[in-house]
């Protein structure tokens, strides 16, 4: 079985600040990391490989520095890594990103299963997985909380708003995984050493035979017109005063006015 797992490098913080002068994000001093749910996708891929045999390739679109994250993916059990890196890929929205990832999947070829984290913590669109499935015209299972493969089908549980579902999709298929699916392992020193010997490939737009009108900014219909810090919605707050007991009396008076007691 040939599994492709798609990983993204994200900032290691959820407290991003804007530069007040330029309106751009302040990136100084912000470390990057592998998107946490993509680590779950790697773990799911490696467990399937351990159970049924096969290979796992990690694929990422990003700047040259994303090599470090791919080395980590190799240390976690992936067999080979592909970095899709080209200035022409920069500034891509989910349509252009999915196009580029699908071109890589086609070039690698003969895949059985494509795995994604359900969303990336920086963008949180959850769109790149289903969009990649659409480009490749394969069925998809989003929000998987378990995964197994039997007789050419991938079988997953899905956690939805008001129910859980058990579904199956015929391979080749694409699955996006939730955090509940597993606990990613830690890379051992031996596996980190071994990872250095595993094959790593860098592909640019020419290598992918990608149409650069469909990648990066030119291939992205959506763009950010402005970013802003949320407006403070000042409500006239009535504060309770005094000791805890005084406040409790005023608090319960308020509850009584609201017909709650």
């Amino acid at each position: 079985m040939k599994i492709l797992v798609f990983v993204k490098q994200v900032p290691d913080t959820d407290d991003v600040k804007l530069d007040p002068k330029t309106g751009n994000l302040k990136r100084e001093g912000v470390q990057s990391m592998i998107n946490p749910l993509d680590a779950n996708a790697i773990e799911a891929a490696v467990q399937l490989k351990e159970k049924y045999g096969g290979t796992v390739a990690a694929i990422s679109m990003g700047p040259p520095q994303a090599e470090d994250m791919l080395k980590k993916a190799l240390a976690l059990g992936c067999d080979e890594a592909y970095l899709l890196s080209d200035r022409a890929f920069g500034g891509a929205d989910t349509l252009a990103t999915a196009y580029t990832l699908a071109k890589a999947a086609e070039k690698i070829g003969d895949y059985d299963l494509l795995l994604f984290g359900r969303h990336a913590v920086d963008g949180d669109t959850a769109q790149t997985g289903p969009a990649t499935a659409a480009y490749l015209n394969v069925p998809q299972i989003t929000l998987a909380t378990s995964i197994d493969v039997q007789d050419g089908w991938v079988i997953c549980d899905r956690n939805l708003e008001d129910c859980t579902q058990r579904v199956k999709a015929k391979l080749p298929a694409l699955v996006t995984v939730c955090g509940e699916i597993n606990t990613p392992r830690y890379p051992t020193p031996i596996n980190i050493m071994k990872a250095l010997k595993k094959p790593r490939t860098v592909w640019d737009a020419a290598a992918l035979e990608a149409d650069t009108a469909r990648t990066g900014i030119p291939g992205s219909p959506s763009s950010t017109k402005k970013v802003f810090e949320p407006e403070k919605r000042n409500t006239d707050t009535k504060y309770f005063e005094g000791s805890a007991e005084d406040m409790a009396v005023q608090f319960v008076d308020m509850l009584a006015n609201e017909h709650l007691v």
Partner: peptide, 14 residues
């Protein structure tokens, strides 16, 4: 909401 929600963005499809 972008970047975990500390910032809001206006997205446009021109």
């Amino acid at each position: 909401p972008a970047y975990g929600g500390s910032i809001l963005a206006h997205i446009v499809i021109l």
